[in-house]
């Protein structure tokens, strides 16, 4: 049972062949130079970008296969994504940001906010729940992005340079926090990072893109 991506991702001169398999409970780190297609792999898995050729499947269910024209939209893949630039919704409070994905699954506002509040407590931001992303620090925003993805308990968790936008001191704190958050997590995790320390601290497997 695993996430399997075999085929060509990206478009034009940025496309590349990839062969990625991530087992449940595994944290695969993809490392490589800028422009090597690391983030494109994550976007393809999330359903934000489409495969050029090949096949992407999760637990033997095909998510994307251009030849058979199968394409499962992003909202039906239930991935949790932490974007490199976070992409928090600036007009929503932190708690509403975290509850967003839960609301999308059909949970009532009350239930979604209750669960989001629990997740915010886990990342130590329960007291800032009503603030907007613009009113908190970079490190706090990063925690919200993590909470927003993790609260969904997604079968696939995609982390795109999850600590890229924070300073060195906050980075260490987050590096310590993340393993505790994903402890017991049974999904597949794909981590893209430039930082060897992130990879060393978190990954159970490493894939290098040339």
């Amino acid at each position: 049972m695993s996430l399997v991506l075999q085929g060509q991702v990206g478009r034009g001169e940025f496309s590349r062949e990839v062969d990625v398999t991530v087992q449940h409970g595994e944290i695969l780190a993809i490392v490589g130079a800028n422009g090597s297609g690391k983030s494109t792999v994550l976007q393809t898995i999330a359903g934000i970008a489409a495969l050029k050729s090949g096949r992407l499947s999760f637990d033997n269910v095909v998510w994307d296969e251009p030849i058979t024209k199968i394409f499962t939209p992003a909202q039906d893949r239930h991935c949790g994504v932490v974007f490199q630039d976070l992409r928090l919704f600036p007009h929503l409070s932190l708690i509403a940001n975290v509850a967003y994905g839960l609301r999308a699954t059909g949970l009532s506002k009350q239930e979604a906010h209750a669960r989001a509040a629990e997740e915010l407590t886990l990342v130590g931001l329960d007291e800032l729940a009503d603030r907007k992303p613009g009113q908190v620090s970079g490190g706090e925003r990063q925690r919200v992005a993590l909470a927003r993805a993790l609260v969904l308990r997604p079968p696939v968790l995609l982390l795109d340079e999850p600590f890229a936008s924070v300073d060195v001191s906050s980075r260490q704190g987050l590096r310590d926090l993340l393993p505790s958050l994903v402890q017991g997590y049974q999904g597949s995790v794909v981590l893209v990072s430039h930082d060897p320390e992130d990879v060393q601290a978190l990954a159970t497997n490493i894939l290098a893109f040339g």
């Binding site: 359903g47 992003a74 994504v81 919704f89």
Partner: peptide
């Protein structure tokens, strides 16, 4: 941000 919404199941 639209992609982020999709990425969270929206």
């Amino acid at each position: 941000q639209i992609d982020a919404a999709y990425g969270l199941g929206g």
